[in-house]
């Protein structure tokens, strides 16, 4: 086994800071935690001007910042996202990652995104994730896993997709 641990357990959520950086938006994405019903009047995240979301990794080594292109995450349509992985110690892009992967899941439903997303590194500007598609409204989690040598560490960004 290549990794000596995989940090993905529920306690990781305690480390997550999911917040909207865009000044236009005061509402932070949240997980409702209840059943499948949705709140049609929940704040929408399709914000003009663009929003981004960030979360600290499980061991605090890095922070992941996700920026959906086009300003928001559309329901059931392909979209792309910028992914920045910032070294907590230096505040600079994290160096020495062997692999960075992204996935999206609906943990309370045991269901997730049905595509493998490719992260393409762009010089000095983090990564670009293409071909994302979230097909249902409800609580989603973006998982960004960074592999460095034998270690795999995850940052988990929570996102409530609304109609």
């Amino acid at each position: 086994m290549a990794f000596d641990f995989i940090d993905r357990a529920a306690p990781a959520a305690a480390f997550v800071t999911a917040c909207v950086l865009a000044p236009a938006c005061g509402d932070s994405p949240q997980v409702s935690g209840e059943g499948p019903s949705m709140d049609l009047d929940a704040p929408t995240h399709s914000l003009p001007g663009g929003a981004s979301f960030e979360a600290l990794s499980a061991r605090g080594t890095f922070t992941v910042v996700l920026e959906p292109e086009g300003g928001g995450v559309p329901l059931n349509e392909p979209f792309a996202m910028r992914v920045h992985v910032i070294d907590t110690a230096t505040g600079e892009p994290l160096e020495g990652a062997d692999a960075v992967t992204l996935d999206a899941r609906m943990p309370i439903h045991g269901h997730g995104m049905l595509r493998d997303v490719e992260l393409v590194e762009s010089e000095g500007d983090g990564y670009r994730a293409e071909g994302l598609l979230l097909h249902m409204v409800g609580p989603w989690e973006f998982h960004v896993d960074v592999q460095r040598g034998p270690l795999l560490e995850r940052a988990q960004v929570e996102y409530e997709l609304t109609l």
Binding site: L40, N76, M136, L163
Partner: peptide
Amino acid sequence: FFGRANCVLCHSGPNFSDGEF
């Protein structure tokens, strides 16, 4: 349909299907 019964969770969009499984 759009509220308590939440059919729209899967039967969403103008064709009333999310197109997924």
